[in-house]
Design a binder for these strands. Sequence first.
DNA 1: TCGCCATTCTG
DNA 2: AGAATGGCG
Length: 469
Amino acid sequence: MTQSSATPVILWLRQDLRLSDQAALVAAVESGHPVLPVYVLDDAAAGDYAVMGAGRWWLHHSLSAFDASLRAKGSRLILRKGNSADVLAQLAAETGAVAVHATRHYEPWHKAAEQAVAARMKLNVHEGAVLYPPALVRSKTDSRYRMFTPWWKALLQHMPPPKPLAAPQAIPAPTLWPDSDVLDDWSLLPRNPDWAASFGEYWQPGEEAAKQRLRDFLPHIDAYNEDRNFPGKVMGVSRLSPHLHFGEISPALIWHVAAREAGEGAAPYLREVGWRDFGINMIDQSPDYGWVDGRAARGAFPWRRPDQDEAAARDLKAWQRGMTGYPIIDAGMRELWATGYVHNRIRMLVASFLVKHLLIDWRCGERWFWDTLVDADYGNNSVGWQWIAGTGFESNPFGRIMAPLGQSEKFDCGAYIRLWVPELADLRDPYIHDPEEFGVRPKAYPRKIIGHMAARTRAMAASSQLQKN
DNA sequence: TCGCCATTCTG
DNA sequence: AGAATGGCG
């Protein structure tokens, strides 16, 4: 016993930076061995989907918070960089560790890494990143779903999720800690310029902050179904997405807390939490969903290519910078830049604008979001863009073009615009939604880069051209 | 196979 | 009021 208990087990962490409700952690502790928690930064494996800009800011603070939580339990976080399987094998060789515990993830690069690790050592994979394992949600004919509603009905048959596991009282430490990289040396935080300077005003990464945000949101959960449509309502949504992405809080914990506090009133909110599982369900079935059209077009769609067409490049830049001349679009893109987040309704509007008004390939938008969102998540991002672009298995038809100006008014976005577009701060409703229409020309605010009707006509023409092919 | 129905709407 | 396309039972 003394001999074997001195042999450590590795707790391999990825997007699971929490102590509560983590089966892998509980199993590692219950094994009776000292536990070596290690986070491996493996950018090469993820390739284009490595944690990028805004996500790296979050990751830095989340790792720091998680290390502090571990230390309060008598443990600590080892940081290593490189190929996951190589790093873990090396760590095992250094410490004599014989087994690895980890939480299962469904991104293709995570699945590949799990296989590579399992080929070289004893890997115990635990569920916990999802409400329910996606492969086990089956239709009557035993097939898997690509449409949300039937999938959701089937998933509900398996709900509630397992009861959340408590954080261990203490985490047994090895007698000798292996070397760890120094977090600051990873240079995850931006500098020169520090474009994330204001992020701290909006976010506090880490498990404790995630739980606090959930507690703060609970009194508003009954109003969610209505208020979530209004980007100006600060407590209309929970803003838990980045915490969920990095695994600082589990979806099962959210489910149980929300259901306990709000009963049936939690249902609309939990359905939206369910969209995260649905995204995972999609990328699990179609690992290339982030860049390959789900429904292949009947010929190449005539996207305007920013890499080949100067006008398209200018339009893409105007969109990225929030200088399109559409107040609601510009407010959203500037909120994204300043906070690493955008309200979901605005995500739909800006995405639709890029794809349909500007006719720019949805993958350009997917890339921009991947770089700028603190909650950039492969499943969510891919499903969202494919839905808006009309390329997804289940998606909005291309011909359905959202009217940004109408939506801005309908969802009362005046205050939201005044907050993010200071050039328009003096304008009242209804002028704020479409100043050009009212003949108002605020200083330094651009004209619309394309008129709504002109864009609509162009998009419909491009789309019908495709039908003929 | 065939009919039903689809996340967040438009003019 | 309308409307078209594909997943699902």
